[in-house]
Amino acid sequence: MIEGAPWRRWVFFYVPVTAFVVSLLFPFYWMVITTIRPDSELYRPWSAPNYAPFWTTHPTLEHVHDLLSETLFSTWMWNTMLISLAATAISLFCGLLAGYALSRLKFPFAGSIGTAIFITYLVPQTLLFIPLADIIRNFRLGDSPWALILTYPTFLIPFCTWLLMGYFKSIPKELEECARIDGAPRWKAMVYIIFPVAIPGILSAGIFAFTLSWNEFIYALVFLSSPEQKTVPVGVTSELVRGDVFFWGELMAGALLGSIPVAFVYSFFVEYYVSGITGSVKG
């Protein structure tokens, strides 16, 4: 805490924190208010009398209702969930093994392989989707969930590998050596000792990977075309913006509902998550 006179605490702590929190939360507030605002208020020009952009006196769930009944929103949610979970599972599995190998096994070029994996993570998706689209077409995977389940790991695996590699390095190697002297072959030492100890790191990698896939836009936009295959970010933006008409109420309702699973996952694991990013293991 900040020491000294109360005004110091206000100037250096409460005021900046409040400003920060307000500016962070404002978009969410805007999303909520737009969702429950009736159309008549939404499309009222700003110069109209009693124009009140920051609150509404006639809250309504009509946009949510429209979103769920007149669009394929629930299908999109389901698609997104399926794709995110599958991509996360694949990436975590590969990331665990690769991260372990890069941090613990001694083999030629281990260092350069680690760097190479990191570099693939740096290639922008906006470039990578062009060759990937070609591959997707050749394998006839277009317009199916597999197109995303198999392409998301291209950026998730490097990400998970690096995060987990760092985490594994923070675990004292004596733990594993002791297990191996105790009679565990390497894979058992890995499964019984290292992985359980690395749970905070594994959870962080998983949550991050899940969020990244949930919010992914470019690949989903390019590789999927029929409305019933789409994911939430693409579905909402492509089906609720027709020509130059923006269905703001439904758009915001979609964004709001779409962010609930991610928010849920975060709040559920937040403790593990924080210790995974910042902490390490104490003996």
Binding site: P172, E174, L175, E177, C178, A179, R180, I181, D182, G183, A184, P185, I193, P196, V197, I199, V281, K282, G283
Partner: peptide
């Protein structure tokens, strides 16, 4: 011979107890 087959036990400086 891998460590597990040498029938030895080792005590480490930092104890290396399995924390979980």
């Amino acid at each position: 011979l891998p460590p597990m087959d040498r029938d030895i036990a080792m005590v480490f400086q930092n104890y290396a107890l399995y924390p979980h």
